[in-house]
């Protein structure tokens, strides 16, 4: 893989939380354009922290993150530039409850991308059709089901036309019957060639949509590999144990 092809380059990331919990321990990972990387691992292994370090929601103690050639450093400008290019979907949706679905998706287009209201509205309606929720455009988040809210949150992130999408346990807070509709949207995105880093417990999705699986524990990579190889013939004993537990 050439350097140009790598859109995410995270090198030697270390992070220890104030309580002394080591979230990342010289963690290195790069992601190619259009690649779908699924990060799995037991809870507390640093998966979410890793994602949150990629767009600066969390500060690393050491190490470097470069997204599409832009270093995530202490320059505010770079940080904002990176956040424009990196969309994020949260476990708890985090929609803005005082805005309608439409307003949620319009906001950053108008304020950050400086689009006109009309342009933004057009993009918004297109995205709502894409996630199949156009009839709820003028509803407030609390009037929607969890699955619908998460689909709106995905549309909101996509409205920035990001180069990378991060999914932080996007289906973990959903009732079982709603997980499918959200995974469906994520599968479509993957098929369209979106670069994605997905933290999830959904092994079905990982197998089907993931190009590469990263198994981490205690802030380090235990094993990584192409999806088929990873599930078919895991090399590490720890990986085998983990897969037996969850499959």
């Amino acid at each position: 893989m050439t350097a140009q092809a790598r859109i995410i380059e995270a090198t030697e990331l270390s992070k220890t939380f104030p309580g002394g919990v080591v979230a990342l321990d010289r963690f290195t990972l790069s992601v190619g354009r259009g690649e779908v990387v699924v990060v799995i691992g037991p809870s507390g292994s640093g998966k979410s922290t890793f994602l949150r370090c990629l767009n600066g929601l969390e500060e690393v103690d050491r190490g470097t993150v470069v997204i599409d050639g832009i270093p995530l450093d202490h320059h505010r400008k770079n940080r904002l530039l990176i956040r424009r290019e990196v969309g994020m979907v949260f476990q708890s949706f985090n929609l803005f409850p005082h805005m309608t679905v439409r307003e949620n998706i319009d906001l950053a287009q108008v304020r950050v991308r400086r689009k006109s209201r009309a342009e933004a509205a057009e993009t918004t309606m297109g995205l709502l059709r894409k996630v199949d929720i156009q009839e709820k455009a003028d509803r407030y988040p609390h009037e929607l089901s969890g699955g619908q809210q998460q689909r709106v949150a995905i549309a909101r992130a996509l409205a920035m036309n990001p180069k990378v999408m991060l999914f932080d346990e996007a289906t973990s807070a959903l009732d079982p019957e709603m997980i499918g509709e959200v995974l469906e949207v994520m599968r479509t995105l993957a098929a369209e060639g979106m670069t994605m880093v997905v933290v999830t417990h959904e092994m079905g999705f990982a197998r089907e949509a993931g190009d590469r699986i990263v198994f981490m524990e205690a802030g380090r990579i235990v094993e990584e590999g192409e999806t088929e190889r990873f599930f078919g013939s895991p090399r590490q004993e720890r990986t085998k144990v983990f897969l037996r537990q969850i499959l």
Partner: peptide, 30 residues
């Protein structure tokens, strides 16, 4: 307010001013 409101706004690239004006203050004042 839930920390997630800040994080969602920041992850969309909104700056501090826009985040306060459009996301945080309308909810906080209410």
């Amino acid at each position: 307010l839930h920390r997630g409101q800040w994080e969602a706004a920041h992850s969309l690239g909104l700056g501090t001013f826009d985040t306060y004006r459009h996301v945080i203050l309308p909810q906080a004042v209410r």
